[in-house]
């Protein structure tokens, strides 16, 4: 269970809990992903959006699905998703 004491600071002025930090981070990463598509190098865009998707997936697993306190499971999921992303990028480059 998350407690009030688990609240952390993720902004300069206001205090937020880890879930709110995760949500704001996910929105920021999604915006960055959209901005990346404006680049002219398709390979760079592909690498960037896949890397950002991987980070977003990790945030969802860690905070929304509460695996942050289960590091072995989080590592396992991250490893499989990383292999998946590398495979997708490899197929894209072929």
């Amino acid at each position: 269970m998350r407690s009030v004491s688990s609240r952390v600071k993720c902004g300069r002025r206001r205090r937020h809990d880890p879930l709110t930090c995760a949500w704001l981070g996910l929105l920021a990463l999604s915006l960055t992903s959209a901005l990346l598509t404006l680049l002219h190098s398709p390979q760079l865009v592909a690498a960037g959006v896949l890397a950002l998707a991987l980070i977003k997936a990790r945030v969802i697993l860690a905070q929304y699905l509460d695996l942050a306190r289960r590091p072995r499971w989080l590592r396992g999921f991250t490893m499989v998703l990383t292999i998946f992303s590398v495979l997708i990028f490899g197929l894209y480059l072929v």
């Binding site: 269970m1 998350r2 809990d17 879930l19 709110t20 995760a22 949500w23 996910l26 929105l27 999604s30 992903s33 959209a34 598509t37 977003k56 969802i60 905070q63 929304y64």
Partner: peptide, 28 residues
């Protein structure tokens, strides 16, 4: 329709946030 799909990403992560907060609030 990429813009709509990108907007839908924001919609889903916000919805997920509310679902996660609901669990926290129910437990407290």
């Amino acid at each position: 329709y990429r813009t709509g799909a990108a907007f839908n990403t924001a919609v889903l992560v916000t919805s997920g946030y509310l679902a996660a907060q609901a669990l926290h609030w129910r437990r407290t």
